[in-house]
Simulated assay, not measured.
Amino acid sequence: MIVISSPTAIINEIEIIQNLFQEGMNLFHIRKPDYSEEEMKNFLSNIDDKFYSKLVLHEQHHLAQEFKINRIHLKEKERIEVSENFQKTISYLSTSVHNINDFNELPSCFNATFLSPVFASISKDNYGKNSNIIESIKCRTNFNTELIALGGIKEDTIKLALDSGFDNVALLGAIWLAENPIQKFKKCQKIVHSY
């Protein structure tokens, strides 16, 4: 199970992230599209460096070497332009798509891909409300890349996503909009582990 950062700053965010790692979070995707280089450096510096091997950078990729982070996420435009450049220096490369056809056509250099929105988004109003992704998974032909469900993933949708053919799930709104993010993570983690 993967957790994606809130795109904006959250109260006690670093403390929550450290606690999520303590509770067994495998990968933490850092998606802060509006952060400057200095803000990102500050953010990364506050995370215990023993967890750097579990961080995935969505922006400010040039900081990966400085912080010894070897996991990168590429947006679609970046994926098309530079995915081959990262193959030599990065051990884990992920990206995002919004339909199964794009997923099926991905080059083999990608370890994992978010496919979204699977369900109605928790953090974005009216996003993913009429998604047909669960149905389209039946057309999956790419089994070399881990397929991760994103969008509306919470306690009551995890099992359906995994039953439908996703390899993993990613939490965003379920964690960062929860009253107690750690408890919410543990509940979702229990469902994934029992699957």
Results as ranks from 00 to 15, higher is better:
residue 195 Y to I: 13
residue 159 K to L: 09
residue 137 I to M: 01
residue 48 D to F: 10
residue 179 E to S: 07
residue 192 V to F: 06
residue 172 L to Y: 04
residue 22 Q to K: 15
residue 35 Y to F: 13
residue 53 S to M: 09
residue 25 M to Y: 07
residue 176 W to S: 02
residue 55 L to K: 00
residue 127 Y to L: 14
residue 176 W to K: 04
residue 84 E to N: 07
residue 170 A to P: 04
residue 179 E to I: 00
residue 125 D to R: 13
residue 40 M to F: 12
residue 184 K to Q: 12
residue 169 V to M: 06
residue 37 E to W: 06
residue 187 K to S: 14
residue 52 Y to E: 05
residue 184 K to F: 07
residue 192 V to W: 06
residue 1 M to N: 06
residue 16 I to K: 12
residue 176 W to F: 05
residue 20 L to W: 12
residue 173 G to Y: 03
residue 12 N to I: 13
residue 52 Y to H: 12
residue 86 F to K: 08
residue 188 C to I: 11
residue 81 E to M: 13
residue 43 F to C: 10
residue 4 I to Y: 09
residue 32 K to L: 12
residue 144 N to L: 14
residue 91 S to Y: 05
residue 169 V to T: 04
residue 32 K to S: 11
residue 38 E to R: 13
residue 168 N to D: 05
residue 175 I to K: 03
residue 179 E to K: 05
residue 168 N to R: 08
residue 84 E to C: 03
residue 63 L to E: 05
residue 194 S to C: 09
residue 181 P to C: 02
residue 151 G to N: 00
residue 124 K to E: 09
residue 174 A to I: 08
residue 86 F to E: 09
residue 29 H to F: 03
residue 116 S to E: 04
residue 133 I to R: 06
residue 81 E to C: 12
residue 66 E to V: 08
residue 91 S to H: 03
residue 136 S to T: 14
residue 46 N to A: 14
residue 16 I to S: 13
residue 15 E to R: 15
residue 100 I to D: 07
residue 68 K to N: 10
residue 44 L to W: 08
residue 81 E to L: 15
residue 34 D to E: 15
residue 105 E to N: 14
residue 115 L to I: 06
residue 164 S to E: 07
residue 5 S to M: 04
residue 160 L to G: 04
residue 132 N to L: 08
residue 127 Y to S: 11
residue 181 P to N: 01
residue 175 I to G: 01
residue 86 F to G: 02
residue 171 L to F: 06
residue 189 Q to N: 15
residue 74 L to F: 04
residue 89 T to G: 07
residue 120 A to G: 10
residue 71 R to E: 00
residue 37 E to F: 10
residue 77 K to Y: 11
residue 80 I to P: 07
residue 10 I to R: 15
residue 31 R to C: 09
residue 49 D to G: 02
residue 175 I to V: 03
residue 173 G to F: 02
residue 45 S to Y: 14
residue 190 K to R: 12
residue 117 P to K: 12
residue 167 D to S: 06
residue 83 S to A: 11
residue 63 L to D: 09
residue 39 E to K: 14
residue 195 Y to R: 10
residue 140 R to E: 03
residue 40 M to Q: 14
residue 129 K to Y: 12
residue 141 T to N: 08
residue 47 I to M: 04
residue 166 F to H: 05
residue 146 E to S: 11
residue 118 V to R: 10
residue 45 S to D: 15
residue 58 H to L: 04
